[in-house]
Design a protein around this nucleic acid. Structure first.
Lengths: 256, 256
DNA sequence: CGGCTCATTGACCAACGTCAATGCCGGTGG
DNA sequence: CCACCGGCATTGACGTTGGTCAATGAGCCG
């Protein structure tokens, strides 16, 4: 099914009946491709579709008055870009593709109807926005309270957990298709300093990088170094970062 | 009704029938008082009630490994502390009273039932969590991307808008019962530097402070200075910061 | 009056930003 | 095949923002 990454994500929280899954799949409309750096949705838009990312990485961002860009979230396969639009008026931020992305569009009205008649799906989608919110809180903690190297370490810990939960890790390696400048814009620091942070983490023997692939040498040590605690991800049925079979035998779309 | 502040808040988004309001009021249980600095909910708790703040200010916060406190949200009358618990497992952060607070408890199960049988209330509560999330995004932008004086200015702009929406402002004045240290913990800076920021805003003639009361001399100029745009608050039916009657004649609980 | 909390200020220091130069690598056109 | 270019990573030198420490004062309360 095209919506497998979403199902896999929602099933971290609840189980969905075959019927629920089919209804969701049927609500899906057109599928679109986006190139890196292309905008998926712009601030101020009132999209009439809800967008589901099924391949690639994207981000939420805002441009400040001084021209700075602040990235506020990373979206990976299974993440919904804008459940907001079922309830809020206009987008208060933009969504941009970070790598090549495939996006599936759900007509807003159909999804709203589906949620109204199927409380289980509604709860699952609400749950996903609550987890997004928890992640956002942790990002605020990260930017507000941690020194720069731990900030980077913490983000890497988060992303390997999230990527693992949708089957995008092998051993302790995963693709993180981000430039250092994009990471810098995420953590409120300069690209130059971001580079110095990578230097430190490599010098400490915590990670290696190869193009956009990140290898974590000792996840336990990186977690301790960064003060990471995965509780905020609310992965009720956890999928570890180690290579593993996703429970329920749902192993489609493993690409790396 | 004891839940008036909540009703007033939700009616920014949707109108509720008299029946809806009564059902909500009836779902409310015990009311508790908290002293300043007292914890309402601790990280790791699995509360069996949803907490509604009806008087005073509270905050969401986490304590980091290095002992730093990061405040991630301010809660004012009408805000729900933990709708999360209807769906998530355990609290991933704590809630603390900033001033003397009155809190109304809704048994989790009753509220869950009410939402299940009344989609209008469910939508309204979901909307409120989506707005919380939008505010959180803007806080991340604030901490990540703005220089310290604008950070403070921006927060003041936000809080006078939010306080205005629940009738807690008179002219351009409002109570902000926060110490400079608490503000510093909110914006990821030191208390000393927070003080320097206040100094600057006063020197610029933008604000005056008197105990914990803030007077804004020229809101337009403060907004321009801080790069503030209220769109993210999603106040669909806006209540201005000027003295005004809340629409629908709902003017209870104006205390200041 | 004494003790507390909080605001305020100055002196000094560390973290991080800015600027600029260099190198690497993949793509592209001749 | 090679020269050139653009995007990105890397590094050093230097400047600025904001942190730390410590002292002082103002207001409140028993």
């Amino acid at each position: 099914m095209r919506i497998s990454p979403l199902i896999r994500k929602l099933e971290q929280f609840t189980s969905l009946s075959e019927n629920d899954k089919l209804r969701l799949e049927c609500a899906a409309g057109e599928q679109l491709d986006y190139a890196p750096k292309q905008d998926v949705i712009c601030q101020g838009d009132r999209p009439d579709h809800v967008h589901l990312l099924i391949e690639g990485w994207a981000c939420r961002y805002k441009i400040l008055h001084n021209g700075n860009r602040q990235i506020m979230a990373y979206l990976i396969p299974g993440d919904l870009c804008d459940v907001h639009v079922t309830l809020l008026d206009a987008m208060d931020h933009s969504i941009g593709a970070l790598s090549a992305c495939k996006i599936l569009m759900f007509p807003k009205a159909d999804l709203a109807d589906l949620m109204l008649e199927n409380p289980q799906i509604l709860r699952a989608l609400w749950w996903s926005t609550l987890v997004d919110e928890a992640i956002l809180r942790e990002w605020l903690v990260n930017v507000g309270g941690r020194p720069s190297e731990k900030r980077l370490g913490h983000l890497i810990c988060e992303m390997i957990h999230r990527a693992g939960a949708v089957g995008l890790t092998t051993d302790n390696t995963f693709e993180m298709p981000l430039t250092q400048e994009e990471l810098a814009d995420t953590m409120g620091m300069s690209a130059v300093h971001m580079n110095r942070c990578f230097h430190t983490l490599r010098a400490e023997g915590l990670i290696s990088t190869d193009a956009r692939r990140i290898l974590i040498h000792d996840l336990e040590r990186l977690i301790a170094f960064s003060g990471f605690d995965p509780a905020y991800l609310h992965q009720v049925r956890v999928v570890s970062a180690q290579p593993t079979h996703t429970q329920m035998g749902n192993v489609r779309n493993r690409q790396y």
